[in-house]
Write a protein that binds this DNA or RNA. Structure first.
Lengths: 352, 352
DNA sequence: GTTAGCAGTCACACATTGCGAGTGCTAACA
DNA sequence: TGTTAGCACTCGCAATGTGTGACTGCTAAC
């Protein structure tokens, strides 16, 4: 028994119907509405075969059928290469980005909002991963006795800062000196490769006394918190999921909500998704059993061609994959170019 | 018919019982468990009076009674002056703050988490309000051609920064000059009082050309976004509310969740609460009808005696007000001292 | 291979019933 | 006069039973 053209059409019709109605589809519905010109009895025969192939499932004997994870997978595989938004759809999304966003955080938040409202599912957008990004400049700014601001600029123009404690008596001039040395020494290095020891060595070279060790370590921990604190994820539209019949059970809703309290869960999802331009995990395909009844669809965004972060959607397995994939791909690209714009204001200008 | 001692005791017993069980309390329950040595018939007579006074409500004729908003108000008024955590309770809370937190955001997040887990309700903590706080220093740091970092330090040591666009060709030295001028000019001013025009005037004084107007305005908008973006609120433990019988209705749960999407709602609550050291809004007392079935309890935190922010709890009207108020008061105070510590690292040192 | 027709299945919505928690009233008692 | 026991009555709720309708699965005819 093979999966001929007609079976595919019927499966497709069932998926389409189930995606919108969320209730098992009967043979009669397909016969009447799919426009295949076949009677319900014929559809039934085909559906029987589809069941044997593991593509359809029945909640109980006398109920209609619903697509299995396997069926969605088949469907997703067939469309994933060709998802694309239409021009009007693109325009409709871009309206929300009409004001120029100059702040990275703004871009992320806005994208999360738009993604959730465009798909009607829960959206998540992670901040760029900076550990693998090379340093361009390190600058310490004197704030007051005992406190300084540590600024880190990456080669691709991203900027991050944090306050650190400094020893008493450290002067602004001294901070400038250290900043300059650190910049020369660490320019081009990756943030994660700058260890406390390396910074300590640098202080020794400067001819500093042992007491400065605490200074070195507070710089190191500042640099570390700079990219650790960077691992944030913006989650939006959780309430959208609650309106779905899938979550009409209060217990499931509560589970979902407490998952949202732990943003690390989403961080893991998004981190795992970084390796693929577009990724779809359907139901049981998810590593985390929390999502075994949901689908997680993700895309990446890039800087200079390198993926630096990802964004995604969590929804029921009966999801409009075509639309969600297209929106994600588009928003991923648009994030990439917005971030590029934020970072490269100067790079572009260097050319003239 | 007045509210004598015994009626108060009975009301108290009903409140206590209802707070834990969430289901209407019958006269028999009180008679057996409250230890008043009265028969259920007597209790019934008293309950009849309490009903006439508007302190008890019945969901239907043959059901037990539950306290009205008015009853909770009476109760809260009677305890609000004297709420205090016991020493062991304090210690148990302080365990969560044992590691020194040097970052304001960390303090806020941690407090939100602890507040929610200590009360078992949804917690919210706002970031400090900076518009009324006076400036100490303004510093522009050159990042790259076209971009600079704007740092604002308030007189009480709080620090905030944001990136701004700068015109081409602006040098680091020029930024230093402007920083110095702005600091001299605006030190002691309040952030909200620094208008674009004032900054523009300063540029004119510097003898700058008209083209620099865009620079002035980007500094102004940077300063503005600095305190606008500051108005954040950390919300935790929304899932806790979903476990309550009050929210067993999925529709109510959804409403709650979509309220959480709009953090402005909570911002309004917390802003309104700034004027009172401790504030309790019971059910209908809330201005926002969204909370007409909930209670909102808030406290403030301070810097140098001035309230700069607030934190609170949203839960059902049947709330353990004594505990919640005590926890809030304590955490408000502990936030105050932690923030004081963060800001005053230098002030303290100035003394020696 | 396709279709009509029909028996059989099963969830779901709806009405019915009985139970139990709780009131409200009355009459008796201290 | 306040307190209590006793009892009829109310009403929500959970358990149970029933009818309906949306299906399938099969068979026989086209």
């Amino acid at each position: 028994m093979s999966l001929d053209e007609r079976k595919m059409q019927i499966l497709q019709a069932i998926i389409d119907d189930y995606i919108t109605t969320a209730s098992p589809v009967g043979s009669r519905t397909i016969s009447k509405h799919a426009g295949l010109g076949l009677s319900s009895a014929t559809i039934r025969n085909e559906m029987y075969d589809l069941k044997e192939l593991g593509l359809l499932e029945q909640p109980h004997t006398s109920a209609g059928s619903m697509p299995s994870d396997k069926a969605y997978r088949l469907y997703v595989n067939s469309i994933i290469q060709s998802v694309e938004l239409s021009e009007p759809e693109r325009e409709q999304l871009m309206v929300h980005f009409s004001d120029r966003l100059s702040d990275l955080e703004e871009v992320i938040k806005r994208t999360a909002v738009v993604l959730s409202s465009a798909t009607n599912y829960m959206s998540m957008v992670m901040t760029p991963q900076l550990n693998d990004i090379s340093l361009n400049r390190i600058q310490l700014i004197y704030i007051s006795s005992g406190k300084a601001l540590l600024i880190i600029v990456s080669t691709n123009g991203l900027l991050k800062n944090t306050t650190i404690d400094i020893p008493d008596g450290v002067t602004p001039e001294y901070l400038d000196k250290i900043s300059a040395m650190m910049t020369t020494r660490f320019a081009g290095c990756k943030l994660k490769d700058v260890s406390e020891n390396l910074i300590y060595d640098l202080f020794i070279e400067l001819g500093e006394r042992r007491e400065q060790l605490s200074f070195a370590s507070s710089i190191a921990s500042g640099m570390h918190s700079t990219y650790a604190g960077q691992n944030k994820v913006e989650v939006r539209g959780a309430d959208k999921l609650l309106s779905l019949p899938e979550f009409s059970d209060i217990e499931k809703a509560r589970e979902l909500m407490s998952a949202i309290e732990h943003k690390e869960t989403f961080m893991t999802l998004l981190n795992d998704a970084m390796s693929m331009e577009l990724s779809v995990k359907i139901g049981g395909e998810n590593a985390d059993p929390k999502f075994k009844n949901s689908s997680v669809v993700t895309a990446t965004y890039k800087l200079h061609g390198e993926p630096i972060g990802s964004l995604g959607v969590v929804g029921p397995t009966r999801m409009d994959y075509a639309k969600v994939l297209a929106v994600l791909k588009f928003l991923g690209d648009s994030m990439s170019s917005m971030i590029e714009e934020i970072c490269d204001d100067d790079n572009g200008k260097k050319d003239d």
